[in-house]
Design a protein around this nucleic acid. Structure first.
Lengths: 342, 342
DNA sequence: GTTAGCACTCGTCTTGCGTGAGTGCTAACA
DNA sequence: TGTTAGCACTCACGCAAGACGAGTGCTAAC
């Protein structure tokens, strides 16, 4: 069976209607809502076809229809093609370039949650692929050294190293020289065990302390941390009855608190981001994690330059206002671009 | 009216019973539960008295009684005096001293949530009052300096400083000398604007760059960050119907996500911690924040030495198993002590 | 191909009633 | 004076029956 224009129009009408009401939508409603001038009976026939095609579902015999995941998918694909709807009001688009990246990211998540009324997440830029800019070992006191590493995007890492016997000033200076000349400009992934071994050799393997310092520095660099993830508006899930029952809500809340699943979403979105604008939409069963089977997830990849790329995500019910969310996301992305790359 | 031993026994019985069932408890139940050998009628008389005293409440005419906040208070105070109950099973008490403090704290929160089935929080040690151990300015590249500050407890802070024209090596060395000799050993609060001004003067006010560097360093130090707070087991609130309705749950979830209110709990608990063992219990209306009117909060102050003090909190329904929570908390505190102060 | 009409389905809301837990009060008892 | 048995009363809760209404599929006519 072919999805002709009329069927398409009806499908869209069903989806749109369901998005706003959350109630199954009946043939009469569609008959009045569209400009097709068809009676409810005709619509019913068409709806029967659409159901056969798997695009809409009848929750029970005497109820209207709701879109299936597949139905949403068709609607969303169509929407992504069409021109952007302008979003009328935008609450507090006061996104400013912050001293601390962390604060800026939190701001974005908050802003997005406020404007969409869905739960949001944002991942801090991944270190993967970042290049080293600067390494330094310094003496804090008799028994402690401090290893400091600066990477592209001015991501800074520190680590304390306990030593029994401090190396003297000259050794430290030499070490710094050595580390910087050998490692600067390399990306984190390029620094492997072989490399470290070579470094140790060059530093003079005899000195155990030097070895330990280099190990610590290397570890600091490779310490590939989990992706830092910030969330906002988790409580928004209570706005949507289909997510707000105890079981689902509890599972979602846990997901948002533990963040490991959010991390996998962020990674997945980052890796799939060849599509235009980097916007991805996962509907229901397409969602990357088990707890989100009843949700839709819209993600986008931001890029602050210097390899500072991360993921923004909006998580809501399947009947989310995709159009609006996509537009708002694009706005936010544009703003980020202005702020960091101008 | 006086709270004689018999009334006390009855109150305790009511509370204990209500804690485990969550249902209003009637006179017959008490009559059987206690060793008083009194008929339900007598109990009824006593209960009427207890109600008059404001210690128990009747949700509606033909229901049993539940403890009031005040009733809980008496029960809890009594309990805190009595000897510790031993907790039989303790899930995964594998608390280990972690490389990163952050991970250890998260571990504690998780552990506590797992063992109590309530929501938990833990605040990272406050910087307030910490002394400076080490300051260093270093050159990252042509246009960037890095200010690094190490405080007691090996808390490290960094800040990048953008400069147009880099000071030469000698200036940087002098600056480091100056900053360390003047500031080391001071606590964060002791470093005020007057002090900074004096430093600038000494560094040679003429050089604008030096001034900016000192400002940045000072700012880094005073940058009194919000308390970092980690939470776990937020989803546990769904176990308790009295907290799980949409309105309350939503509010609580928000509280746990935004963390500012948790912060104020942590601060309050820290400041009130003169009591034995540092354990505080806030019941219902005593709870420090508006969203927790229907909750009880048990807090404790941990101390890892070197001024590393923070707050652990368990948040649950008013009918929380105080006894168990307190015991578990004490266990955790003891374990922390072993790990960090032995 | 479209539409009016009709019988039918089924979730939801309302109502009424029975049930049982628990109470307060009174009167009798030790 | 404290304790207890007995009794009438209250009220939340659960269940069944019924009314309602939204929506459907199908058929026959246009």
């Amino acid at each position: 069976m072919i999805l002709d224009e009329r069927k398409m129009k009806i499908l869209h009408a069903i989806v749109r209607n369901y998005l706003s009401t959350g109630e199954p939508v009946g043939s009469r409603t569609i008959s009045k809502d569209t400009d097709l001038n068809l009676s409810s009976a005709t619509i019913r026939n068409e709806m029967a076809d659409l159901e056969e095609m798997g695009l809409i579902i009848q929750p029970h015999t005497s109820a209207g229809r709701i879109p299936s995941d597949q139905g949403y998918r068709i609607y969303v694909d169509e929407m992504l093609k069409s021109k952007e709807r302008e979003v009328d009001e935008m609450k507090e688009l006061l996104l400013s370039r912050e001293e601390k990246l962390e604060n800026m990211l939190k701001q974005v998540a908050r802003l997005l949650a406020l404007n969409t009324n869905y739960a949001t997440m944002i991942s801090a830029p991944a270190l993967k692929g970042k290049r080293l800019k600067f390494i330094q070992i310094s003496r804090v006191d008799g028994a402690h050294l401090l290893a400091t590493v600066v990477m592209e995007g001015n991501v800074i890492k520190n680590r304390m190293v306990d030593v029994e016997e401090n190396p003297d000033d000259e050794t430290i200076m030499k070490l710094n020289m050595l580390l910087n000349t050998r490692l600067n400009g390399l990306s984190v992934d390029e620094i492997n065990l072989g490399m470290i071994a070579a470094l140790k050799l060059e530093a003079g393997q005899h000195s155990e302390i030097v070895t330990r310092v280099i190990d610590a520095a290397a570890e600091t660099i490779r310490d590939n941390d989990n992706l830092e993830i910030y969330t906002s508006g988790t409580n928004n899930i209570f706005r949507y009855p289909e997510l707000a029952d105890k079981g689902r809500a509890s599972a979602l809340i846990t997901t948002f608190e533990e963040k490991t699943e959010l991390e996998s979403i962020a990674l997945k979105s980052l890796s799939e981001t060849d599509q235009a604008d980097g916007i991805q939409i996962y509907i229901g069963s397409e969602a990357p994690t088990a707890t989100m089977q009843d949700c839709s997830v819209v993600t986008a990849t931001y890029d602050l330059g210097e390899g500072m790329r991360g993921t923004i995500g909006v998580i809501g019910p399947k009947r989310m206002d995709y159009d609006r969310v996509v537009t708002i996301m694009k706005n936010v992305m544009r703003r980020l671009d202005e702020l960091y790359r101008k």
